[in-house]
């Protein structure tokens, strides 16, 4: 785990990093299914209580600095929020801390819109090992 200063990170920001910082829904679902990613919903507690995904876990953005030990250093950390505004802040924070972190461009709303009906059934079956 190598921390990087914000200045150094920005100076090294290039076309490759611009791509690497993001992850699309299908890739996230696949990595999660393979046990290679952690999905972190960084919304505030009240938002999470109102509705949340049946997988992944909630660490509110402002609790992230104190709860960073809960994250698996060997996995890709995918940060998610309704769209991607806050997920990007979380991604940036974790990246500077040395994690392999990416934010979900499709957001939670894109995720729940995609995982409807049979797609929800099939995905949940897959991650629970029932397929």
């Amino acid at each position: 785990m190598k921390e990087i200063s914000f200045d150094d990170y920005l100076k090294s920001f290039d076309y490759d990093e611009r791509k690497a910082m993001k992850i699309k829904l299908n890739e996230m679902l696949k990595l999660y299914e393979e046990g290679k990613a952690e999905i972190i919903d960084i919304r505030f507690k009240d938002e999470y209580e109102a509705w949340h995904l049946g997988f992944g876990k909630n660490i509110p953005l402002n609790e992230l600095p104190n709860r960073i030990d809960e994250l698996d250093k060997n996995k890709t950390i995918v940060t998610v929020c309704p769209h991607y505004d806050r997920a990007e802040i979380a991604r940036l924070f974790l990246k500077l801390k040395g994690f392999n972190a990416r934010y979900l461009t499709d957001g939670l709303l894109g995720t729940v819109d995609y995982l409807r009906g049979d797609k929800a059934r099939d995905y949940i079956a897959k991650i629970k090992g029932e397929s």
């Binding site: 953005l61 402002n62 600095p65 104190n66 806050r86 802040i89």
Partner: peptide
């Protein structure tokens, strides 16, 4: 490095 997410509250 500053822990910049800490000060983020809903409001």
């Amino acid at each position: 490095m500053a822990n910049f997410p800490e000060n983020i509250v809903p409001s």
